[in-house]
């Protein structure tokens, strides 16, 4: 805990507030959220739907601008961080371009940055190996299963070797078995790339299994209601899911939801 806090903050949010104006009402999506995420840390944003966890992630990605407060990413404003390509993002759906082969989907960000073709091809194969999709380089997205498509999306997010990986419920559309396997794979990828990961989820076990810390959010208005440290040792293994400590953590997080 104190060890984690002592590290250099990679992402900092200060009194962030987010209001939406809809036709009928004024919605306060996020209220006074402040948090620090350390370099190299794996954190989860956990909460029920409507708690603003995805909004929070989008603020970090500069896909939204807060109505009040500061978002600092890699020592810059969120916008500067985006323009400098400091983060890679993975959405709930893979968002692969149908007309591009798998390898060309992966190297899309590099193409936009003007990286040379030979370098891109090399990088694509390296990344496919990393996510365990060797031999699928020349397939089209529709020829892949949902889990494989999401792995391509992760590879794409890693292609420009970002310092930060933002993941918005990336596995929520997959079945439980695939999801658990991908959780383990994600951790093994993370151990190799050493980036900071912010992971949005509504699954308590998933957040515990993956994270160093879990930020628990509550709805109406969306706010940070608890921060739970996960002292499980790394590397994490599938067996840990059955350990008493794991169940204890689940109970603790469940208790931390106010009135839910």
């Amino acid at each position: 805990m104190s060890l984690v806090a002592a590290k250099i903050p990679e992402i900092q949010l200060e009194d962030v507030e987010m209001r939406y104006q809809t036709e009928t009402a004024d919605v306060l999506a996020l209220h006074q959220v402040s948090l620090d995420i350390a370099k190299g840390e794996f954190v989860s944003l956990l909460g029920p739907s409507g708690c603003g966890k995805t909004t929070l992630l989008r603020l970090m990605a500069d896909l939204l601008t807060p109505t009040a407060g500061n978002v600092i990413v890699a020592g810059k404003s969120a916008k500067e961080a985006r323009l400098a390509q400091k983060y890679g993002i993975v959405f709930q759906s893979p968002v692969l371009y149908d007309w591009r082969k798998v390898k060309h989907n992966i190297t899309l960000p590099l193409e936009l940055m003007g990286v040379k073709k030979t370098v891109r091809e090399e990088k694509a194969h390296e990344l496919l190996e990393l996510v365990g999709l060797q031999g699928f380089a020349d397939k089209y997205p529709w020829q892949l299963s949902g889990g494989m498509q999401q792995r391509v999306a992760i590879a794409r997010a890693l292609s420009m070797e970002p310092e930060i990986l933002l993941m918005d419920e990336p596995f929520s559309a997959l079945d439980e078995f695939t999801r658990e396997r991908l959780n383990e794979e994600l951790l093994s990828v993370w151990s190799k790339v050493q980036s900071t990961i912010v992971f949005v989820t509504h699954s308590i076990p998933e957040s515990i299994f993956l994270s160093d810390r879990v930020f628990v959010l509550s709805p109406h208005p969306g706010r940070l209601s608890a921060v739970v440290d996960i002292p499980l040792p790394r590397p994490r293994t599938a067996e840990m899911r059955n350990s008493p400590q794991f169940f204890e953590l689940i109970a603790r997080i469940r208790d931390s939801f106010e009135g839910v």
Partner: peptide, 21 residues
């Protein structure tokens, strides 16, 4: 798809690149 546009935005892609790619 809106997410596809956001993806381009997250890559800081220029407007012509958003159209072309």
């Amino acid at each position: 798809d809106l997410s596809a546009v956001e993806l381009m935005h997250s890559y800081a892609a220029r407007p012509w690149a958003v159209y072309w790619k």
